[in-house]
């Protein structure tokens, strides 16, 4: 295997116990290079805990985490060399200027020139305010400064814990484009966590879903939707009763009903054109097809067979 193909992060049977409580159990997955990798789960699922173990803030009770081949628990300094991260909020020294904050982190690594600091500042668009005290910054500016400190040393792995917290939809889209660009152009792997499926589908190439500290699934994202996951499809069709019959016949397990004069079916994305073809074939007029992404809760219910959500 050449270097470009080995996963940048490998988790193997990682568990975390605090006291007698098991917070993370037997987590195993790989993060590939050059992709935006999502870490999805409801609040309290253990996303932050896993990230803390990846960056060495928390010890690993069982199992191993390797970053660029170096073990986080046994060879921390080597493993963390390649990592830039923001864990939860981007906390900064408020009594220092943005620039002094970056200076501070630059001094903790070898070979970060002044030019690199200026470059990163320009990259996150803070050039005009960088010599002001962080005290005066808005949340958005602090987040930019947080990203700047994470990128200073040209990491090959960028970890952002719930980066969309406090961002508006435009901000999320901007972040998405930016992360995609980073991952494609610089071959950086980006790990982002979120509790919102819709955000993950927008941002990520692949998503690991965890619940109650356990890995439920790792899925690729295709066309802004989790592959293989069912969405809710609303069809405006005439005659509608006949459409319902065809939809029910399409798949035994299908969940179909008429709601507000429209046909509402739960359907995998790849099945939508097939159903549409059958409807058209039967001479039914299809005026519109509308898909709504299911909420994370629905997806969880589906994947976990109705288990209680943490």
């Amino acid at each position: 295997m050449n270097e470009a193909e080995t996963p940048i992060v490998q988790l193997r049977n990682v568990s975390k116990k605090i006291g007698s409580k098991t917070i993370i159990s037997q987590l195993s997955f790989d993060v590939p290079r050059g992709e935006v990798f999502g870490f999805l789960g409801p609040n309290g699922a253990g996303k932050t805990t896993t990230i803390r173990m990846m960056v060495g803030l928390m010890s690993i009770t069982e199992g191993e985490i390797h970053i660029e081949g170096a073990s986080v628990s046994r060879d921390f300094e080597k493993a963390i060399e390649h990592v830039g991260a923001i864990v939860e909020n981007p906390e900064m020294y408020k009594f220092l200027t943005g620039y002094q904050n970056l200076m501070h982190y630059a001094r903790m690594r070898n070979g970060i020139a002044k030019e690199r600091i200026d470059e990163v500042v320009a990259l996150v668009g803070l050039s005009n305010r960088i010599h002001e005290k962080v005290k005066t910054y808005s949340l958005g500016m602090r987040q930019r400064l947080g990203v700047a400190q994470a990128l200073l040393h040209r990491p090959s792995l960028l970890i952002l814990d719930e980066p969309t917290n406090g961002l508006d939809p435009a901000g999320i889209r901007e972040l998405r484009d930016y992360l995609r660009k980073l991952s494609r152009e610089e071959n950086i792997a980006v790990v982002v966590s979120s509790h919102l499926l819709s955000e993950m589908e927008l941002m990520c190439d692949k998503v690991a879903i965890i619940q109650n500290g356990k890995l439920i699934d790792v899925r690729a994202v295709k066309g802004d939707q989790l592959e293989g996951s069912a969405g809710i499809v609303q069809l405006e069709a005439d005659p509608i009763e006949q459409a319902l019959e065809i939809a029910k016949a399409f798949d035994d397990s299908i969940d179909a009903a008429i709601q507000d004069g429209k046909l509402r079916v739960t359907l995998n994305r790849e099945d939508i054109p097939k159903l549409n073809a059958q409807l058209v074939e039967a001479g039914i007029k299809v005026y519109s097809i509308q898909t709504t992404t299911k909420s994370l809760e629905d997806t969880f219910l589906e994947m976990t067979g109705g288990d209680q959500i943490a």
Binding site: V55, G56, L57, F76, E77, K78, I80, E81, V83, A85, V87, E88, N89, P90, E91, M92, Y93, K94, Y105, M108, R109, Q149
Partner: peptide, 14 residues
């Protein structure tokens, strides 16, 4: 207290 410890400890300094 400031929460900056999370920024401080994730660098290659023991």
């Amino acid at each position: 207290t400031w929460g900056t410890i999370k920024m401080l400890l994730i660098r290659p300094a023991s």
